[in-house]
Structures are given as structure tokens and as C-alpha cells.
Amino acid sequence: MASETGGPVNSTTPHFWRDPRLPFIEARAIEDGRQLHYGRHAHAVFSIGAVTAGQSWYLHEDQRLRIAQGTVVLMNPGAVHACNPIEDQPWSYVMFYVDDAWFGEVQEACEGRGDSRFRPLAPVLSQASGLFRDLTGLYADLLSPDLDLLAKHEAALRFFIQVQRTLGGATPRPARPSPRVERAAAYIDAHYRSSLTLADICQAANLSEGYLIRAFEQRFHLTPHAYLVNRRIQHVQARLRKGAAIADCAQEAGFADQAHLQRAFKRHLAVTPGQYRA
């Protein structure tokens, strides 16, 4: 059965929608985001959303943009970002988190390349009114009790075909990765459940501490520690979606205790682990 936490959005409480029969997509909405403050973070999946009322600040890696109602925002997997209120102005939003392997198949169907690997989208935002209208329409369709599974699946496909046709095709500005910096990130990815030290990461990547900090942040827009915490949060999200106990998630992911997880999770996602799992 679908997990539609909250129905109509009518408070500062984040509302999540997910359905195990459509595992490639998750939705989130908030009506009043004035009390929600996000730290810089990244998702392991493709994310797209829209401001549905008011205005907010949109941080996307090295850009800080003021966005308003009707703006669609996009984050490729791993893109560091945060959206936060402007002073005490009310604002609301809807977000979708989409499995990039599934989206890659949509891209292949649109372009006929014979390659279903996900290709990052270049734009970080769009003012296309049709895209905004259909994004909010998809959210309504997913929550609708009057639509069956097939109708919701088709609605998701139609929307992401439109996303690809509207915003796909261009190639994002290529990064110039250092193999040793990439090796440092890969080491964190492989050992994030352990208690890592800077010396451990430097030794794995054969880099000095000073160079690692500077080059890593330039490449990933996060310090090695922030990257490590973000990776742990991603692990916890995946486990919570499967109903795991919060205390177990904290231990598995390498947090000192459940309280440490609670603080980090809310700092990253402006919601508690319990609210997310609900």
C-alpha cells in the first residue's frame, strides 16, 4: 500500500509520499518553510522540485540564487545544495527524489542512444511555466486516492519525459577531477561506517592534509568530514525507507549514538528521522 504521510499539506511539518510499488520515486512537500533550515547536503539520486509559493534562497554548489513561485530547481546526484527561507518570508515547495537508473531509461527512450546510463542535466533551474504546472500536477496525481497504480506510473513517466525533452541534451560543465581526490572520496564511500581520521583518508589518497582539504572541497563542495556525514545520512535514509529502527540505523551508519544521528539528520534534511520514516 502507498505511504502517504499527511494528505493535504497544512503546516510546517514535512510530508513525504512513497509507494513500494513505485520504488523509483519519492515526493516531499511543505506549506510553510520558514522554520526549516537546511545545511549543505547532497542526495544520491536525481532531485527536482519547485517553489509553489513565496521566495527562498537556493544554494547550488558555488551559486546562491533567489528563487520564487514558479521556479523549478534541479540537482544531479551528488550536487551539493540547500534551500532556505529569506528572513521570515513564508514559502512552500514540492520535491521529487528519483532513482537515476530509472531516469536513465527514460532518457534512453527519449533520445534513442542505446545507452540507459543516467546523463546529468545541465540546468540548475527553469522558469518554464509548463514544467512547473506539470510538476505540481504530478504531485497531486501521486497523492490522489482516485488514481490507480498504473495511472500514477504513467503520470510519472509523462512528466520525466517532458523534463528530458525540455532540459536534457546539453552537457553540464565538466569537472576536472584529480584521481587522488576521487580516490579520497571513494575511500570515504567504502568506509563511511567506520570512525575515519583525516590521516586515514590522506594515506588512502596519498595526499597531504592541506592539499586534501582544499582540493576536496573544490571538487565536491564539501569538506571530507561533511562528505562523510552526508554519506552516512544517505545510508540512514535508505534504511528508514525500509522501516529500520532509528537506533539500529545510527549504529550501522557510524554515528556515535541515536542523538548524534538525530542532530545530523535534522541539520541536513530539516526533518527528524522519525518524521522521515513515518
Rank of each mutant, 00 (worst) to 15 (best):
E4N: 15
T5F: 14
G6P: 06
G7I: 02
P8D: 06
H15E: 13
W17H: 14
R18L: 12
R21F: 10
I25E: 09
E26F: 13
E26D: 08
A27R: 04
I30K: 07
Q35P: 00
R40P: 06
H41A: 01
A42P: 00
H43T: 06
F46K: 01
I48Q: 03
I48W: 03
V51P: 00
V51M: 05
T52L: 05
T52C: 04
T52I: 13
W57M: 12
L59M: 08
I67M: 09
A68Y: 07
V72P: 01
V72A: 05
N76I: 07
N76Q: 10
V80R: 03
A82N: 04
A82G: 01
A82R: 09
C83M: 10
D88R: 12
S92I: 02
V94D: 00
V94Y: 00
D99P: 05
Q107A: 08
A109M: 12
C110Q: 13
R113D: 10
G114C: 11
G114W: 14
S116E: 12
A122D: 08
P123V: 10
L125Y: 15
S126K: 02
L131R: 07
L135F: 11
Y139C: 04
S144A: 14
P145T: 12
L147G: 04
L149M: 12
L150R: 14
H153Y: 14
E154R: 15
E154A: 10
A155W: 09
A156F: 11
L157Y: 15
F160M: 07
T166K: 03
G168A: 06
R180Q: 15
R183M: 12
R183P: 00
A186I: 04
Y187V: 06
I188V: 15
T197F: 10
L198P: 00
I201N: 01
I201W: 02
Q203L: 09
N206M: 08
R214G: 03
F216P: 02
F216V: 03
F220L: 11
H221P: 02
H225I: 00
A226V: 01
Y227W: 07
L228F: 10
V229H: 00
R232E: 05
H235T: 06
Q237H: 07
R239F: 04
I246D: 04
A247H: 08
D248T: 07
D248V: 02
A250L: 05
A253T: 01
F255S: 03
L261C: 13
Q262T: 11
A264H: 13
F265C: 05
K266S: 14
L269T: 04
L269V: 06
A270V: 03
P273L: 09
